[in-house]
Amino acid sequence: MSITTSPLSDQRPPRRPDFGLAQVNIVLLLVLFFLVVGTIVETDELSVDLSKTEDLPLERLPRPLLLIAPDGTWALDGQAMSAAEVAEALSAPAAEGQPNAVYILAPQDLPADSLIAAMEALVPTGRAVSLVTLKDKGAAP
């Protein structure tokens, strides 16, 4: 017994593959790439000329970020705060899924005394303090 197709099947044009599907796939991959590789930072945080390191492993840059401007002012996650306000804000427990830490963005020409003063101000918060540096692969060892 042979099955014959309906002659009506020839009347409908063959469906062409949609270009939009491939376009969405590529864009979705790019979105995932920037999600994984990128770190969301404020505009002011990008303006800081960070200290450079060569041998440390790459790390993500989660929040909270404490920006120490060259003029000595502080900004926690983009909001200008005093030292007392930063200590108070960081005294609250970290959000779920976030490490109990604080990351310092300090200019490389900032006096070391200011850096140590910032560390002392962060002591009561009980959070792990890390200094953010920029990995310089091109620098000579």
């Binding site: 960070l50 200094l131 540096t133």
Partner: peptide
């Protein structure tokens, strides 16, 4: 909004 700068951390 994201930055691709390769950051490293020094634990203090």
């Amino acid at each position: 909004s994201s930055s691709l700068a390769p950051y490293a951390l020094i634990p203090l």
